[in-house]
Design a protein around this nucleic acid. Structure first.
Lengths: 243, 243
DNA sequence: CAGTGGTCTAGACCACGCA
DNA sequence: GCGTGGTCTAGACCACTGG
């Protein structure tokens, strides 16, 4: 264990913060693990308790750690999952009402990517993608038609994807394929339901809908998923609160 | 100046934080004002410097204060304005492209509120509202049709609202009417352009659009504005980033 | 009871902005 | 040179958790 540089321009608590962060990013400490106490860090790095505390507090602020009085300090679940879950407030609302969400996989296949997908996923030439098309229902009523595209190198074995429905897509990517999504960009705009979509969504062509596009990035910053969703306008309403 | 309660269940830094927050909410300290230094707070409230610092740091975290090394600690602009501005990324995008935003006030009048507006604005019986209808354009092309409703007690003098266009609505409410918006709820859903709207927005009936509804709350938690916007779907795309 | 995090103090040295 | 915030230390007492 290298000591921290006391004469450095970088504050001690910041150096310590980076050390702790590294241990998390490495996977040395996993979500739910207990990390060393303030007292242990104090001795190990020869800093005061307040300095150790400040390093930890910043990581709590960043959402990487959480603390329980009398118990200890623990590694938090990656933040993005919380955000992703949080965004889809309409599905949460359904669950709160006691309705049952259900996903139907329409098809999973290898396809040649369109020009748009090549650029969004930053694909190499001649690289194919895996498309997974799903109909997401609540109480057997469809409300989202969703196509996810993955670079083939990310999902070498298609059969793994078939377990979607049992567990969430992001858990599947993380546990089955060791792909952790750390960042995502989303864009949305209002559109009209098209005839191909109207069949799946059991609604009329020309009805209002939301087109939602998401690019998810892995921990190395490389795009791992491009997802395009059509959400029925008569079945959803999005809420945000500004404080 | 009452001293803080040293034997209280509430931590000293939290008590101090509330005192400081009150001075801001009161309007005693206004945005841009310099607040007392850590040294002054130390003496004034008989606490250690670290305690004063912690109170200030939390308020910085909350976005109410900002600090400049060597200069002092200052009151920040209300956070909501930043968020509200941030949300309308499409208008920002227009500005970055060098396009000119412009608002046209269609009408300002006193009306009897609909049932929906009575409940959203928590109106008393027989209380009228002021409606302001605006067409918001970019480069003389309309992109949002917006109606704001205010309880009459909030805007006793209609003529003030006519200055919208020179300065932003929220600055107007704050400076002219002493109404500070501190919180807002928004909801949106995809809809179709209706015929009344199509004339103003110069687009066809049945085209995709976004219906955006916002309730803005004053510092006392009472609703001060209900706003309903129709945004042209072919002229906007909303972006969010999840990290 | 020992160990944890939560709070608090009294002091110290530093880098920065400004007159 | 002085006041500001930024960092850091050494020590203290507390409330909570668990064995």
């Amino acid at each position: 264990m290298k000591p921290l540089q006391n004469d450095s321009l970088i504050p001690l608590y910041h150096q310590l913060k980076e050390r702790l962060k590294t241990s998390i990013d490495d996977g040395q400490w996993k979500p739910g693990d207990k990390i060393p106490s303030e007292n242990q860090l104090m001795k190990e790095y020869s800093v005061s308790r307040n300095t150790a505390k400040k390093a930890i507090e910043e990581l709590v602020q960043d959402g990487l750690l959480y603390r329980l009085q009398g118990k200890g300090t623990f590694v938090a679940k990656p933040k993005l999952q919380q955000s992703l879950m949080g965004l889809y407030s309409f599905s949460k609302v359904f669950k709160e009402k006691g309705l049952v969400p259900k996903d139907i996989v329409i098809e999973i296949k290898e396809v040649k990517p369109s020009y748009e997908i090549i650029t969004e996923l930053q694909l190499a030439e001649e690289e194919n993608v895996i498309e997974m098309k799903r109909l997401r229902c609540v109480d057997d009523e469809p409300y989202v038609l969703e196509s996810s595209f993955f670079p083939k190198r990310v999902v070498p074995d298609i059969s793994l994807l078939k377990r979607v429905g049992e567990i969430s897509l992001y858990d599947l990517l993380e546990e089955g394929l060791n792909v952790v999504v750390t960042r995502a960009k989303e864009a949305f705009e209002p559109v009209l339901i098209r005839s191909e979509e109207s069949e799946y969504l059991q609604t009329k062509e020309g009805n209002p809908a939301l087109l939602l596009e998401r690019i998810a990035y892995g921990s190395d910053g490389v795009p791992v998923e491009f997802c395009r969703s059509i959400v029925r306008g008569d079945r959803c309403r999005f809420y945000t609160e500004l404080t």
